[in-house]
């Protein structure tokens, strides 16, 4: 597709979780690593919402941090609008690219400086990216942004602790929008919020997307929220993509056994009387992942090949799954 905005290619990131040097020498231990993200590839088209779902430890937040440059990839490449964000991107070019994407974090209380007034918080990206802007223009712009996210310009004089959780997340959104980005990475933006407030924030994010043609990478563990927001979904399991595809198709006909299990596990709030299959097991430790397909110890369709060989993504219509059983037509 020509309107690809973000292209993530074979992204991997491992963390060193070894014991301290002295312990290693005394106890004869090797270095240990966690492969938080392993060989993940996906593309995000302009104006779309790409959601990453997965349970804790699946690597979704690591991917968010890799995309915005808070972490550097061990392997692989991230291409934003034709330019590779490889290591060493510096100076004016970095600034030009960086202002085009922003991030919203899970906990707005932790991501807003408690000792700054809201005006200063929202104006900070403007001070960095719009150096020629004068104080008056900046002040007006902050007022505009506050109105945009459903607060009033007078709220700018207050401090973050004077707001409720939902309002704080609105402030974080206003700050993310300050520099007119095209692309926002949202890491669990509503999981700290109550449902009625979550609905407000999700509606706001959708409205802003329509208004400014924003592209989102939306990270969440909540499948209902993802279903509501996403046009495209990637399902992560132990740092690898288990399945990726169009949201509609993925929810209607999940291919990968893990996706099926995950959808099955969602509580049946509509009370359709759907019978749930029994869910087996839990995510194993990422320090010592099972060989072969990482899902095989929990998978009802696993065979010898699954236990030894890592499956690659194979595309089938609107979605692609990394599963030997799907590839061989066993399920």
């Amino acid at each position: 597709m020509s309107d690809t905005l973000l292209d993530v290619r074979h992204l991997s990131r491992r963390f060193d979780v070894s014991a301290p040097w002295l312990n290693r020498k005394l106890e004869g231990l090797d270095k240990t690593y966690v492969n938080a993200v392993k060989d993940v590839s996906f593309t995000v088209a302009k104006g779309q919402t790409f959601a990453l779902v997965g349970e804790s430890g699946s690597g979704k937040s690591t991917i968010a941090r890799l995309i915005v440059g808070l972490l550097e990839p061990t392997e692989g490449e991230i291409v934003f609008d034709g330019t590779s964000l490889a290591r060493g991107l510096k100076g004016a070019e970095a600034r030009r690219l960086r202002r085009r994407f922003q991030m919203i974090f899970q906990d707005p209380l932790a991501s807003l400086n408690p000792r700054w007034r809201v005006t200063d918080i929202i104006a900070e990206p403007l001070r960095v990216f719009e150096r020629s802007m004068n104080d008056r223009a900046r002040h007006l712009r902050v007022g505009e942004l506050l109105t945009l996210v459903g607060l009033s310009p007078e709220d700018g004089l207050k401090f973050p602790h004077q707001f409720s959780g939902g309002q704080r997340q609105r402030i974080a959104i206003a700050r993310a929008l300050a520099a007119n980005p095209e692309f926002i990475v949202c890491d669990e933006p509503t999981s700290a919020l109550d449902v009625s407030v979550q609905a407000q924030i999700l509606n706001l994010m959708k409205d802003l997307q329509d208004e400014f043609g924003l592209t989102y990478v939306f990270i969440s563990h909540n499948l209902q929220v993802v279903r509501h927001m996403a046009t495209e979904i990637g399902v992560l399991y132990l740092g690898r993509l288990a399945e990726v595809g169009e949201a509609e198709a993925l929810f209607a006909t999940p291919q990968h056994p893990y996706t099926r299990m995950l959808l099955d596990a969602v509580p049946d709030i509509e009370m359709t009387g759907r019978r749930r299959k029994k869910v087996e097991g839990e995510i194993p430790s990422p320090i010592d992942p099972p060989p072969g397909c990482p899902f095989h110890p929990r998978c009802p369709f696993a065979n010898a090949r699954c236990r030894s060989e890592v499956p690659g993504l194979t595309r089938r219509g609107p979605q692609a799954a990394a599963c030997h059983a799907v590839e061989e037509g066993r399920i």
């Binding site: 009625s196 509606n203 509501h228 509509e270």
Partner: peptide
């Protein structure tokens, strides 16, 4: 009623969720 409408659901894809203004 608002609380139920504010919960995104798997079975339906509404464009907007029910909006209860304000907070508790």
């Amino acid at each position: 009623q608002g609380l139920m409408g504010a919960i995104p659901k798997l079975g339906e894809n509404l464009d907007r969720l029910v909006h209860i203004p304000g907070s508790m």
